[in-house]
Simulated scan of single mutants.
Amino acid sequence: MNTTDRHPLVSAYLDAVARETAELPAERRAELLADLREHIEVSGAEDDARLRAVLAGLGEPRTVAASALAEEAPAGRAATAAPGRTKLTAVLLAVSGVLILFSSVVGAIALIAGLVLLWAAPQWETRDKIVGTGTAVAVPVLVLLGTLLGASSRLGPTELLLILAFALAVPAVGGTLLVRAARR
């Protein structure tokens, strides 16, 4: 530690950056502060005017912190996702299939809301979103095809049970996969 580290301007600047980066992992925050210290030290500035110029060149502590936090965002995206919203999205998509069988309006609303939440959420990759969408729309597509082909008049109890099992299982599997993917 050199004399520059003990200068009040440098201490205040580094403390401000440390406060602004409290959300960063401790190791990343320490690395950032060490880099800033090194840059200040290498500048050779020791008087107030030069130190102010060096610190101004680094940028405001809030700006430095925002840049560091933005760099961390992709790696920590699942951790920043709201767990309640993740579960709500998965549940809406998981129950939409059964709801469509019993009430097409309520099921459609649940499906649309779930898909909007799914595609707006940062915690899932595009692949996860496609799988979630596919499993959620499988039941409505099956119902629509059955209606268009006139199959509903020829359904017996066994076929109805199979459709109900499909309507329960496929969206539930999709919801489970989404919850697991959000934890990664």
Score class of each variant (00 low, 15 high):
N2C: 01
N2H: 05
T3A: 12
T3G: 10
T4S: 10
T4C: 06
D5N: 04
D5A: 11
D5C: 03
R6F: 03
H7V: 14
P8K: 11
V10C: 13
L14V: 08
L14K: 06
D15G: 01
V17A: 00
R19H: 08
T21N: 03
T21S: 02
L24I: 03
A26I: 00
R28V: 12
L32Y: 05
L33N: 04
L36R: 01
R37T: 03
R37W: 04
I40D: 02
V42F: 14
G44L: 07
D48L: 05
L51I: 15
L51Q: 13
A53Y: 12
A56T: 15
G57C: 05
T63A: 13
A68F: 00
A68H: 02
E72F: 01
A78H: 13
A79M: 11
A82W: 09
T86R: 14
L88E: 02
T89L: 02
T89K: 03
A94K: 02
S96V: 12
G97T: 10
L99D: 09
L99R: 00
L101N: 10
F102K: 12
G107T: 08
G107N: 12
G107C: 01
L111W: 07
I112Y: 14
V116G: 02
L117Q: 01
T126A: 14
T126M: 14
R127L: 15
D128R: 11
K129C: 08
I130W: 08
T135Q: 10
A136M: 05
V137M: 15
V139D: 14
P140G: 15
V141F: 15
G146A: 12
G150M: 10
S152R: 10
S152V: 04
S153P: 01
R154D: 09
R154V: 07
L155V: 00
L155N: 10
G156W: 02
L160G: 08
L161W: 11
I163A: 04
L164E: 09
A165Q: 07
A167M: 11
L168S: 03
A169R: 04
A169I: 14
P171I: 13
A172M: 02
G174A: 04
G175F: 00
G175W: 06
T176A: 15
T176G: 11
L177D: 07
L178Q: 00
L178G: 08
L178E: 00
